[in-house]
């Protein structure tokens, strides 16, 4: 029954894909594409932001706070995406992901580490035998402004190196130019290139300009085969925000009811404090319920967040804040 549904859905996607592909490029103007792809609901910015900030007012104390912070650690994609990354840095990050706090092994591990393709093999080796997955950015991250063949090759190679998850970027230029079919095609092609690896689609919401376009891009990504949708590369400001995350979770909810398929969500960039992390978890809890409160369907893309969460957990345990040097800065 499940596979039948999945097959039916894939068939629908393929069909959709064919319909889009059969339309000659020249006639696929900005105003034409929506005739083919199902339209997205409109978004009211004021009310969306109001709802997101209302959810920040949930008061989380004691047990709820500790449970939330522990969950947040297990949802983290510990990330390093810098030009100065080295194998040593990546290995250090891996050991931090495996055992975030050396004094308490019940904390963690993180869900994944997220690196450039060149470091996938290093990470794979360092994490061998553990549950921590290796995610690799690909498709000419972070801009995505390269020919499709190169982007697909990028993704394929990352998978060949052993990546369990691929974090691709969409072509924001195409999205803003109204070439939604091109965006769709590229995601579908990348999904195919990923094979068994899970595909996270980065929308780079900070470049999309409005909630309406973010909603459209979310729908497009899910229709094209994304396993996760993700806000940001972390290279552009603003990165993840509560209203954007709420909006994308609402898109996931609509898609789930329409298809039965559960898509994951990953806010990335800008989530630095425990308080922010708990706010995001509240948004998840009150939008998509229990099932999404799980690393298989919700992730944080973060580098600085982990130590703040550890500091808060230690504060809850001991009653006092510890110096930041008490936590390893990998």
């Amino acid at each position: 029954m499940g596979s039948l549904m999945k097959r039916a859905f894939l068939h629908f996607v393929v069909l959709l894909h064919r319909v889009i592909s059969s339309v000659p490029m020249s006639s696929r103007g900005a105003d034409r594409a929506p005739l083919i792809l199902p339209s997205s609901p409109t978004v009211d910015a004021v009310a969306l932001e109001e709802r997101a900030s209302a959810l920040a007012k949930r008061s989380l104390k004691k047990v709820a706070k500790i449970a939330g912070l522990r969950l947040a650690i297990r949802m983290m994609d510990l990330t390093t995406l810098e030009g100065k990354d080295t194998p040593g840095k990546v290995r250090a990050l891996c050991s931090k992901a495996l055992r975030p706090l050396d004094t308490d092994h019940t904390i963690g591990p993180c869900a994944a580490i997220c690196v450039y393709p060149n470091f996938v093999s290093v990470a794979k080796l360092a994490l061998a035998g553990s549950s921590v997955a290796v995610a690799s950015v690909a498709t000419a991250f972070p801009s995505g402004q390269s020919p499709l063949a190169i982007k697909l090759d990028d993704a394929r190679r990352a998978v060949d190196f052993g990546a369990d998850e691929i974090d691709m970027v969409i072509d924001r230029g195409a999205m803003l130019a109204g070439e939604t079919a091109k965006v769709f095609d590229e995601i579908a092609a990348t999904k195919e290139a990923c094979g068994q690896a899970h595909l996270k689609v980065i929308l780079e919401t900070g470049e999309l300009g409005s909630y309406d376009v973010i909603r459209r891009a979310s729908d497009l990504a899910m229709l094209a085969g994304a396993d996760f949708i993700k806000t940001s590369t972390g290279k552009i400001q603003p990165a993840a925000t509560p209203p954007v995350t709420l909006l994308m979770l609402e898109a996931i909810r609509d898609y789930y009811y329409a298809t039965g398929r559960r898509i994951g969500m990953k806010p990335a960039g800008g989530v630095r404090t425990s308080k922010q992390a708990l706010h995001y978890l509240v948004i998840v809890k009150e939008t998509l319920g229990d099932d999404w409160l799980d690393p298989s369907l919700f992730r944080f893309g973060a580098s600085a967040l982990l130590n703040d969460v550890l500091m808060q957990l230690e504060k809850e345990r001991t009653g006092a804040y510890q110096a930041s040097d008490d936590f390893s800065k990998d």
């Binding site: 709820a64 939330g68 978890l281």
Partner: peptide
């Protein structure tokens, strides 16, 4: 499809 708003993570 159906969303479960349960006590997986509850507020104290």
């Amino acid at each position: 499809p159906g969303i479960v708003f349960g006590n997986q993570w509850d507020y104290a």
